[in-house]
């Protein structure tokens, strides 16, 4: 899976919790929680979406690593090959 394919799926999971998201306006390094006003329930639902979309488990200890779109794409890429 290419990084672009991963990014597309990540954005789809994000859009499920933040429907007003304009993908083109989201800077790769922007903090998602601040940028999209995501709370802990949104964050959990997003992680559930990611887990299902890519078939991976995401330990709680890794949550802090997933603060930006860029970081998430890298994290997923490392797990799905």
């Amino acid at each position: 899976m290419t990084n672009d394919e991963i990014k597309t799926k990540v954005l789809a999971a994000l859009a499920a919790v933040a429907p007003e998201l304009e993908p083109g306006e989201l800077a790769p390094g922007a903090n998602l929680r601040d940028e999209l006003d995501i709370d802990s329930m949104d964050a959990l639902n997003f992680l559930v979406g990611l887990s299902q979309a890519f078939g991976i488990d995401i330990p709680e200890a890794d949550y802090r690593k997933l603060s930006t779109l860029e970081a998430i794409v890298g994290y997923v890429a490392a797990r799905v090959g």
């Binding site: 802990s40 329930m41 959990l44 992680l47 559930v48 990611l50 299902q52 488990d57 709680e60």
Partner: peptide, 17 residues
């Protein structure tokens, strides 16, 4: 809660709230 969540996949975890 951390111990509870560590044994479960994301979809079954709880928030401290």
């Amino acid at each position: 809660l951390a111990a509870y969540n560590a044994e479960r996949p994301v979809a079954e975890r709880m928030l401290y709230g």
